[in-house]
Every structure is written in C-alpha cells, then in structure tokens.
Write a protein that binds this DNA or RNA. Structure first.
Lengths: 185, 185, 185, 185
DNA sequence: AATGAATGAGTGTTCATTCAT
DNA sequence: CATGAATGAACACTCATTCAT
C-alpha cells in the first residue's frame, strides 16, 4: 500500500498545511492525520519538525542559487537585469506555494535557517540589480521591483482579472522600475 | 506600586514581544514576566490573548479610517492621490512597530479580526489610487506603491543609508508609480 | 441606588444559578455579573463561596426542624405520619428551587456542611414514619415515600399533566406507602 | 511495563474518582497520579475528559437498551412489567458504581450526552410500565417505582440491615407499586 | 517502514480569594 | 458599601519528541 513515496507525501501535505495555517499553528498530529499515519512515522523520515520545513526549501534554493550564479557571470547590463527578473518570475511561479508561505510567515522565517539563507539570496539578487553608487531612490526601485513580485503574486487576488495578465503586468512594472534605476531616471 | 498604567504597560510589552517573536510564539507567561506580574493579572485587563492584540490595533485603525474618509471626499485627482501616499507614509511611521508586526505575521493576521479589517482598509486605499478601467499594469502600479511602502519601511535595513533618506526615497518611488498610473504611462 | 438588599439579591441570584448549573460550575464572577457588582462586593457580604450556599439553607432548615420537633411531640399514629407528609410537601413546595438544587447536587452536598445537616434531618423524618421493628419492606416504604416526594417534585416534568395534579398525586402515593407500612400490609 | 490495559485502568480509576468526588471536582491530574502516568498519557487514550465519562456509559447502555427492546416486544401485561423491574434491578446492581455516580451528579449529567441518552431510556422504561390513560396517581406509582430503585440502591446505607434484604425489599415495593397501578388500585 | 504508548514542558484560561483604597 | 488590581493554584488540553517493538 505505502510505497517509498511517503517522504514526498509528507512534504506535500506539510507545504499545504504550513501555507494554509502557518508553520507554528500546524501540528505534526495534523500532518500525520492527513496522511493517515502516526506522528511517529514522520520521525522516521525527518528528524524534527523544522527538518520538514528545511527540506521544503531545498528544492527551491537550487534554482535561485543558479540564477544568482548566472547573474554574477553576466555583464551588469540592463538586458541582464531584465533577464534576471524574468527568470525570477519563473522561479516564483514554479514554487508559488512555498513563496506564499514565506510571505505570510516572515516572522517565523527570520529565526529559521532557511530564512537566513533566503535573506542572503535576496540581498545578492538586489545587488545584481542595483548600482551601489546610485541615488537612494534608484536603490529603492530595484528593491521594490523584487518586493512587488513577491507581494503581487499572492496578494493580487483581491483585484479582478486574469491571473496570467496580472503576472505579466507585475513583471512589466518590475522591469520598468529596474530600467528606470539603470538608466538613471 | 500598582497604578493605573498596567493596561498600557501590557500593550507596550505585548507589541514589543509580538513584533520580535510573532504572535503565536509569544506566550502570556512571557508578557507577564516582563511586567513582573502574574498571568492572571493580564486577564484582569484583557479578556483573551487575542483581545490584547485587538487592542493594539485600535489606535492605528482610526488614522487610517480618517485618511480613507478624507480621500473619498476629495476629487480623484493626481494631487489627491499623492497626498494620500504622503499621509499614509506618516501613519506608517507613527505606528511603525505595529506595521512591522503585521508585515511579519501576515498569516496569523489573515484569520484574526483586525486582519480582516486591515485588508478592507487596504482595498479601500488602493481603490482611491487606481482607476478600475485602467490597464492591468497601471492597477499593479498603484498596488505596488502601497506594498512598497509597507515592505520598504522595515526591510530596507539591509541597505546602508540614512533612515530618513530611505523613507523619503520610498515615498518618492511610490508617488512616481501612482503618477505613472494616473497619467497613463 | 443600591440599598440594604444586596445580601438578599446575592442569595437570589446564587440560588438561581446554583440550581441551573450546579454549585461547582457557577463562578462568583457569574453571580457578580448578574448583579452588576464586582466579585469583591460578594466578599463584603459573605466570607466564602460556601458561605453563600450555607446561607441559602438557613431559611429552609428552620421549617423542617420545626416539623421534626412537632412530629416528635406527637403520638406515633397514622394520622401524625400523614400530617408529617402533608407538611413536608408544603415545605418542599415553599423551597422548591433549593430542593431541586440538592437533588441535582447530591455529590457536592455530601461533603458540605448543609448536606450533613440535611441528611440528619431526613433520617429523623424517616424515623418518625417508620417502625424500627417492622419488616424491611415496610421500612423501604417509608423511605420511598420521602424519596418519591423529592424526586417527583422535579423530575415529573416529563409527564404531561397539571402540576398541581401531579403534586397531589405524589402526596397521595406517599401517604399510601406510609399507611401500608403503618398498618402492616 | 506498558501493557495494553492502560485504557481500562483509566476507566476504572475515573469511575472510582468520579463516584467519590463528582465529575467536575475530579481533575485529570488526579486520575493520572493514581495511575502513575502523566496527564498527557490520558490524552493518548481519550480525546477529552468528557470522553472518558462517555466511555464509562457505553458498557451500561447496552443492557438497558436491550431491556427496553425486550419490553417493547412483550405484551403489556402485569407479568411483563414485573419482569422489567426484576431485570432492571439486576442491571442496576451490575453497574452500581455508575448509577451511584449518576444519582449524585444529576446536575452535571443533565448537560452531558450520556445524561440525555439516559433520560430518554428512563422515559422509555416508564412508558413500558405505565398506562398513559390511567389516573395521575397510577402514573406516579410507576414513576416512583423506578425512582425508588435508583435512590434506594445507594441511599439505604443509613438504615441497618442486610444489603441483600434491602435490595429485595426495594424490588418488592417497586413491584407492588406497579401492580397497584396496573390493576387500578 | 512504521506503530503504540508515553513524556515533559508548555499553552491559554478560570477560579476563589485578598486587600488597600 | 463597594471597587480596582492582583495573586496563586489549578485546570483541560496540545505539542514536539522518544523509544521499544
């Protein structure tokens, strides 16, 4: 009945519940019940609750790390910056539930390992977009471009319209912001 | 020893701890210990833990409600929209710790009363800024303007620079976004 | 506004709530709220919660004590026994809520002072009705006569019929039982 | 050390303590201490405190339900009614502690599930004994017959005599009451 | 690969009671 | 005659975690 996919199923259910209710408010009992196994079974697959959370980030970390690596190897041109945003939008869409979770649990993330890592990645990303010698408003534009993508992906439900339209509109605005920052107004 | 300021002190400590550790991870025991009173004393002043949180929002709700009311009484001109952003920036600065808390506990807020209220207020605010018949990217610009102010106020610590500079840069970018949306490119 | 009747009002509300919810499940907070005073006010009028309960029994003790005294001064005739039942029925009706409370809180009563007292009174009453040398079934009849009056007064709600009819029917059955016991079949 | 009998032991101790002190006044801590386990262990076996109580009633419900069912399939003759009382006496004796608990916690029972159930069973039982068209005193006799058995089983400690004698005397009186009701005086 | 049974530390909440004012 | 403020002890319940089987 139960094959070697239990680990994966735990991750799926955990992501779903963490996203719906938050990390703290989701208990291992709940996860276990959703899977129709005992709590102890979870401990066969993961050492702690935090470990389950950590594991969820492993899959999403790699694409972003690669994106950063790629960006660092490119010329700091406008085209590069725009491409970074496009690729980041794809990464966001590919791991939407996890980003949604992070968005809603920023506080919890702050004191967890993956939170630290993610923060560093975000800083690296912003650093690829901004020019450290530019005026403050241009710095803010780059920063805002990323923030807007995060927030927009999930909080735009309250505005009517086709989801794909929204997503491409967000990307358009983000690119515009970075372009303004790059060209200097 | 016991003066009439205990209620206020509870609110102060609660805001501080909720902000630092999140609502769920902050226990009433902790709050009580910080105040050197017993947990039961908290219950003399507030009916539940959630009640403490609710009370924190009462002070911040009024200014925003007034701002919305003011905006609804104004012509939907560019000047009005810019003034709304300026006033909102002030409200944000005046209740910074609470906004920071909300930013980091979005998930928790979602299922609490003040969260619901706040969401409605945000929608009302966006509605004052955007033109419902405009293109999607313009809608996104208005939405982004507000989001940027929220996120920027707290997450900009990782970029060096004078806090006041940052704040005014954020406001500048937000105003710019709304201006673009208003003028139609 | 509040005159010297607060003590009485506390007793009234306490009797009502103790009866509805039981002694243990009724908190002083509840009583105070019903009266629109603070808990502390209750302590001005009564030393403890148990004290409130005790005070409720004072008014009902006297009539029963007098009944017992009266019975002990009478010849142990059938007429006397029947008259005891009649008078007891009146006492029961006069303090119905309190008897109802006792009926439903026998366990709690057992370990409280008034419970002890009441038990002694009941034994004295049975002793007035029964002949200690009679056969066991006759003893049981006398005992049952009293029990029936207690239980019947409150538990007969589930049978349709006029309350007065029920009460007089109960008394009739009780008298019959005691008569059978007295005459020896 | 840990065998599969813990659930049963919890029930045993709970019945004992609920009976001695009442349901409300018995804490889970106490039960746990009597068993030398932690409170949390109780929650492995039962979902709530009320659940422990409910479980105690499961064993006693069945015999009474069967008795009612049996009675409903019999002719409404005097013999049937007498047999019902006899069988009910046996059920009472078999689950004496639980009935004693109910007797002393009528108030608590009133608002609990098993209390509701039990009340319905009692009504069904009385309905098997009484003739709904009979005079009120005859109805009362049937009702009293059952009440007497309940009360008598536990409250007769205060009269000297052999317990078995008492029990059979109670049954005798109960049968007599129902017989009078059936024959019409 | 998983369960059954349990734990220790904690949670939010309620209670009867006290006492200075 | 009463309140405002507080306490200490308890309560039902939940949690992440452990470990023998």
């Amino acid at each position: 009945m139960a094959r070697g996919n239990t680990r994966q199923r735990i991750q799926d259910v955990a992501l779903e519940l963490f996203g719906e209710q938050g990390y703290e408010k989701t208990s291992l009992r709940e996860i276990a019940e959703h899977l129709d196994v005992t709590k102890a079974a979870l401990y066969y697959h993961f050492k702690t609750k935090e470990d389950i959370l950590n594991s969820l980030f492993e899959s999403v970390s790699q694409p972003i790390d690669k994106l950063i690596e790629w960006g660092q190897g490119q010329p700091r041109s406008l085209e590069t910056k725009q491409e970074i945003l496009r690729r980041y939008a794809d990464a966001l869409a590919a791991a939407a539930p996890l980003f949604r979770f992070m968005q809603e649990n920023q506080g919890t993330m702050r004191e967890l390992r993956p939170g630290e890592h993610f923060k560093h990645r975000m800083i690296s990303l912003v650093d690829l977009l901004r020019d450290p010698d530019a005026e403050m408003p241009d710095q803010v534009r780059c920063f805002t471009a990323l923030m807007a993508m995060h927030a927009g992906m999930f909080a735009l439900k309250d505005i009517e319209g086709d989801p794909d339209d929204k997503r491409s509109a967000i990307l358009e605005v983000a690119i515009e912001l970075v372009t303004q920052a790059h060209t200097g107004h």
